[in-house]
């Protein structure tokens, strides 16, 4: 457990979630033909899928939180809700400070543009002005180590190069909160090590980080706290060691009951 980065007890909060729920309507017809063919049956055909149920927690400044759980447990959905990319159906999400998110393999890059153009596009999406990006540009290229490929269209990048550039941009926009969803998995070993070093540096600078990862080693390495999701429910929230045990246990436990309000 990395105790060096733990925030002080009285640290102010940066992210606050309360009773957040999200369900998706699956199998909704998107074309006129499907709608006409299924007309009438359409109502019955709709299936609600609950991805998050009553999720609530608070994150203080400077904490590094590991978000773990089985495939489909709602980790990415939760990160998108925190990032303001999808709206929860119920509950409140509050946040302050500058936020940068690396969601499911990369930031929003446009395949037809070069790496250089995408850096500018992405930087301005994250709230930087042109001058600020000019200032960071060389440092972003250096960090990503993609060299002359910076002037190649990103559709010709390997998935590792893509993530390198995305990660480099995200860590250069001076975020207070960094959301990272499994992006480190595709980097090669030296780059993963570099990213972990960067994350440690971020911790010492008091930045708040939420990491989704399937690598228990990485989680144990950097996180101060672990939140375990199981079918959209938070089943554990606390210290890293017990958290990883709870994660292992959650793989074998059935989903929490269908009516969570009946639980204590």
């Amino acid at each position: 457990m990395a105790s060096s980065g733990s925030p002080a007890v009285d640290a102010p909060l940066v992210v606050r979630l309360d009773g957040v729920s999200k369900h998706f309507v699956v199998r909704r017809e998107k074309s006129l033909k499907e709608r006409l063919v299924n007309f009438g049956r359409s109502r019955r055909h709709r299936e609600d899928f609950t991805a998050l149920t009553g999720v609530g927690f608070e994150i203080p400044v400077g904490q590094t939180v590991g978000l773990v759980g089985h495939n489909g447990s709602g980790k990415s959905t939760l990160l998108k809700v925190i990032g303001g990319i999808i709206a929860p159906d119920a509950g409140v999400v509050e946040r302050r400070g500058r936020i940068a998110a690396l969601l499911e393999l990369g930031a929003g890059f446009h395949p037809d543009l070069t790496g250089r153009e995408n850096v500018y596009l992405n930087g301005s999406v994250l709230g930087l002005s042109r001058n600020q990006i000019d200032e960071f540009f060389q440092s972003i290229v250096d960090f990503s180590e993609i060299g002359e490929f910076i002037d190649t269209q990103v559709k010709f990048y390997s998935s590792g190069m893509y993530v390198r550039l995305a990660f480099a941009v995200a860590v250069h926009v001076d975020p207070d909160v960094l959301l990272v969803d499994e992006v480190l998995a595709v980097g090669d070993e030296p780059f993963q090590r570099k990213c972990m070093d960067k994350i440690r540096q971020f911790q010492s600078e008091g930045r708040t980080i939420v990491i989704v990862s399937h690598s228990s080693d990485q989680i144990a390495d950097v996180c101060d706290r672990v939140i375990v999701l199981n079918h959209g429910h938070v089943v554990f929230d606390g210290e890293t060691g017990p958290g990883l045990e709870a994660l292992a246990a959650s793989f074998h436990t059935p989903p929490p009951g269908p009516a969570p309000e009946e639980q204590p």
Binding site: V14, G62, G84, E94, D176, S204, E205
Partner: peptide
């Protein structure tokens, strides 16, 4: 806690919370 971290924490503590919702 490093100085830079403390500065950041102080700055964030002074900011108001914003409700995050794409439909705001």
């Amino acid at each position: 806690m490093t100085d830079i971290a403390r500065l950041r924490a102080d700055r964030i503590a002074a900011l108001p919370f914003e409700r995050v919702e794409p439909t705001a």
